[in-house]
Amino acid sequence: MDSTKKNITIRHLLTMSSGLKWPGNEAMIPSKNWVRFVLEQPVESEPGNDMKYSCGNSHLLSAILQKATQMNTVDFAKKNLFGPLGIEDFKWYQDAHGIAIGGFSMAMKTEDMLKFGLLYLHNGKWNSKQLVPAEWIDKSTRNLAVEETSYGYHWWILRDKNTLSEEDKTFYAMGMGGQYIFVNKQRQLAAVFTSNLTDDVSSPIHYYKNYILKLREG
Rank of each mutant, 00 (worst) to 15 (best):
S165C: 07
Q70N: 15
S128P: 04
Y207H: 09
W156V: 04
A27E: 14
M174L: 14
Y207S: 07
H12G: 11
N184V: 09
I181Q: 03
F76C: 11
S31Y: 05
D50A: 10
N127C: 06
E166L: 12
D200L: 02
F90G: 05
L164M: 04
G86H: 09
K5N: 12
K185H: 11
K5R: 15
V132N: 01
N72A: 04
S203Y: 03
N49T: 15
W126F: 09
F104Y: 15
K109I: 09
P47E: 08
P84V: 01
P23A: 03
A107I: 11
D112A: 12
S45H: 14
Y93A: 13
S150L: 11
S62H: 04
S54Y: 02
S203G: 02
K214P: 05
N123L: 06
H59E: 05
L189G: 04
S62Y: 02
N33F: 05
I101C: 09
N143A: 11
Y53I: 05
N184T: 08
G117T: 06
I212M: 07
D112H: 12
L65A: 11
K5A: 14
A173H: 07
S45R: 14
M174I: 09
S203Q: 11
E147P: 00
G86F: 05
L164G: 01
R11G: 12
H59P: 03
P204M: 02
L85Q: 00
G24R: 08
A96V: 09
D138C: 06
G48Q: 05
M174Q: 15
K6Y: 06
G103V: 08
N33A: 08
T69F: 01
E88M: 05
I99M: 09
G19S: 08
Y180W: 10
Y93M: 12
I29M: 08
I181C: 02
T9E: 01
N57H: 06
K32R: 13
K139L: 13
Q179G: 03
D89C: 06
I99N: 10
E26M: 03
E44C: 13
L164H: 01
M106A: 13
I101H: 04
H12Y: 04
Y153L: 08
L13A: 15
T4H: 05
N57E: 04
Y53Q: 03
H154L: 15
P204K: 02
A63V: 06
F104T: 14
A96K: 15
V74N: 08
